[in-house]
Structures are given as C-alpha cells and as structure tokens.
C-alpha cells in the first residue's frame, strides 16, 4: 500500500538516520539517505520524493536553507513533496522559520519514537 512511496532522509547523524529508516522500511517505504545539506539538496532536486525528512544542524547547508531553496521564493516549489523537519532544536524561533518556509511539519526527535514517526509519515503520505 505504501510500498511505492519514497522518502529522502537528510541527516548527518548516520545511526539516527538508520534507526528511523529501519522502522520506515519495515513499514514498506523506500528510503534513501543524504548525509549533509548540500548533498541532500542535490538529490532532492534531481529526483521526486514523496517525503523529505530534514535535519537542521548539518554541515554545508542547514536544513532551513535546504527547505528555503526547495520551496523557493514563493513557497510553492516541489508541491508534490512533503517536507518535515526532524531535529533536536526545540527553539520556537526555528520552528516559526520552518513554518514560514512552508515546511509540512516540525518534529523534535527526542520527543518521539520511530514507531510514532512511522504513524505521522503514514498520515502525511
């Protein structure tokens, strides 16, 4: 059912990416990885993904920067792709920035578990 859905996981912390990926793959999603912001942006622009999970604190480019480029000036870029920030930065300021840049969600990693993430993803795509 969700088998055809694809996810790009942009996260510089490999163990965390793999941990979430395992649950998402178990749920039938196709998961690809990028380990820094620049690489993630290149991949996201090269191919369509149903969902991009995006960390913020990354080398090369921050998640917010990647989000802004992808959504573009008008916030309409990649309309078929849901973009969800997955971070441990809990500041309201960052969360507001993500909302304004047209993210579809902002999730604090430490406050959810992988199965919850799978549930959220299931509702989004």
């Amino acid at each position: 059912m969700a088998g055809s859905k694809s996810i790009l996981f942009i996260e510089d912390d490999k163990p965390i990416a793999e941990m979430y990926a395992r649950v998402l793959q178990h749920a039938g999603y196709e998961v690809e990885f990028a380990y820094d912001g620049a690489e993630g942006l290149t991949r996201a622009q090269a191919k369509h993904y149903d969902l991009i999970l995006l960390d913020i604190m990354m080398p090369e480019k921050t998640g917010i920067e990647v989000l802004r480029v992808l959504r573009g000036e008008d916030g309409q870029g990649h309309p078929e792709t849901k973009i969800v920030i997955l971070t441990n930065l809990a500041q309201n300021k960052t969360s507001q920035e993500a909302l304004r840049a047209q993210a579809d969600g902002y999730i604090i990693k430490a406050d959810i578990v992988p199965s919850q993430l799978a549930g959220i993803v299931g509702k989004l795509i």
């Binding site: 965390i16 979430y20 604090i108 990693k109 578990v113 992988p114 199965s115 919850q116």
Partner: peptide, 18 residues
C-alpha cells in the same frame, strides 16, 4: 543529552515493537 536520548528511546521502541 537529547541526541543520545533520541537513540535510547528509538532503539527501545524498535526492540519492543519488533
């Protein structure tokens, strides 16, 4: 402490569900 906590919770969750 959030990053290690993320992993502790995450792997425990995987263990208890799988």
């Amino acid at each position: 402490l959030r990053t290690p906590l993320t992993e502790i919770k995450g792997y425990l969750d995987i263990l208890s569900t799988e």
